[in-house]
Simulated scan of single mutants.
Amino acid sequence: MRLSFLEPLYKQSGPFASVYLDTSRDSAVADPDAAIGLRWRHLRDALTSEGADRGTITAVADLVGSDMEVPGTHGQAVFTAHGHAALLDELPVPPARDTAHFGTLPDIMPLIAQHAPGIPYLAVRVRYGGRHSTDATGTVRVDAEAGVWPLTKVAPGYRLHEEIPAGDWPRAARVIGRELEGHARRIDCEAVVVAGDAWARGILVNRLPAPLRGHVTTVEGTGDAVPGRALLEQRLESLFRGRMAAHDRRLLDVFLAQRAHGAVTAEGLPAAVAALQRGQVRALLLNNHPESPLRLWVGPEPGQLALTEEELRSYGVQDVRRERADAALTRALVGTRAELVLVPEREARVHEGVGVLLRCPLPRGGQDAPVA
């Protein structure tokens, strides 16, 4: 996973307020705004107890519940610094529990976890409105969306909508296929999910450009269309559950292959810290343990992290703080443009939950070796 979406956050200095809360607006709650307000009051008290100032509290209060246009179940992540918004993001799934933290570094791992697996995809729904395939008066309605799962649940991507006379559908399907290929190329699409009427769906799939056809999965039915939510959301949920993005899978495979041969990998918190201090990390592989007690000492700069206060001070760093290890590691990754791979333990366990894929020595051409 590339962490460039966090760069604006780390361009600011702390301390940060980090707030995660359920901001669902669905039929299960009679007065969702009142429920959100009650949740925020509890979190406000938690921030105050951790030393948050009045400006910080006001800045968070102005942002909490501002996602009124997002329907259904979801959550919100709010980060502020020095009385100003630092980052605001919608969560595809409500947090397991509402939390608030005020500290030197933002509590960012719950947000990253909700960005995973980060699968770029195309969803296409084809509906035929005639009585049978030879009904020239019927129409074929096409809806398509290009997105990244699961973020598209709450932040819909590019949408296409076309209504085409049934008699023109075989020709029009080829044109639409070429348009879809362009959007797929822009997002580096790895899955094309096509649902709907079997006749119209079959014509479209058979006329898709070859690069797309190799990624197609067809599903039955058309799904309910919910404004503001992902097209074919429930079917995508079933299809992508437990799946890693192809890019992250390749990085994991490289790490496991190199580990098996004793090559350029490392495991454990000390090895990860040492590699990040030297800017040698290509990708950090993490078994996400939100309950982990591991802590690191950090300074003002991303590469200033250490296992002990004494080590960090020995480098001449005077302003030091003790923070969650995952928060310190994430800031260092963003600062060095390294990647993060969240690895389910069923896929691989790494020592202390942390594995490192080191940057390979540069070949003579001066470029990083490509991912296998």
Score class of each variant (00 low, 15 high):
residue 8 P to N: 12
residue 100 A to S: 07
residue 17 A to K: 07
residue 173 A to L: 12
residue 91 L to T: 08
residue 12 Q to D: 02
residue 47 L to N: 08
residue 272 A to I: 05
residue 116 A to K: 01
residue 276 L to N: 06
residue 349 R to T: 14
residue 361 P to Y: 08
residue 44 R to A: 08
residue 263 A to E: 14
residue 336 T to D: 06
residue 257 A to Y: 05
residue 152 T to A: 14
residue 246 A to P: 03
residue 156 P to L: 03
residue 369 A to L: 15
residue 278 R to P: 00
residue 6 L to T: 10
residue 41 R to V: 03
residue 68 M to Q: 13
residue 5 F to D: 01
residue 75 G to Y: 07
residue 186 R to C: 00
residue 80 T to K: 09
residue 349 R to H: 06
residue 336 T to I: 00
residue 61 A to W: 00
residue 276 L to D: 12
residue 1 M to P: 12
residue 132 H to F: 15
residue 153 K to F: 01
residue 170 P to H: 09
residue 29 V to Q: 12
residue 142 V to M: 10
residue 184 A to I: 02
residue 43 L to K: 06
residue 355 G to N: 02
residue 271 A to Q: 04
residue 29 V to Y: 01
residue 78 V to G: 04
residue 364 R to P: 03
residue 343 V to A: 13
residue 350 V to R: 00
residue 128 Y to I: 00
residue 361 P to I: 12
residue 347 E to S: 10
residue 230 A to C: 15
residue 94 P to S: 07
residue 195 A to Y: 03
residue 297 W to H: 14
residue 120 P to D: 01
residue 126 V to I: 14
residue 76 Q to C: 06
residue 359 R to F: 04
residue 116 A to D: 10
residue 361 P to R: 14
residue 13 S to P: 00
residue 9 L to C: 10
residue 137 T to W: 08
residue 332 A to R: 08
residue 142 V to I: 14
residue 342 L to K: 09
residue 9 L to T: 06
residue 316 G to R: 10
residue 293 P to D: 05
residue 128 Y to P: 00
residue 322 R to W: 00
residue 154 V to I: 09
residue 48 T to Y: 02
residue 52 A to V: 06
residue 86 A to M: 04
residue 200 A to D: 02
residue 150 P to R: 07
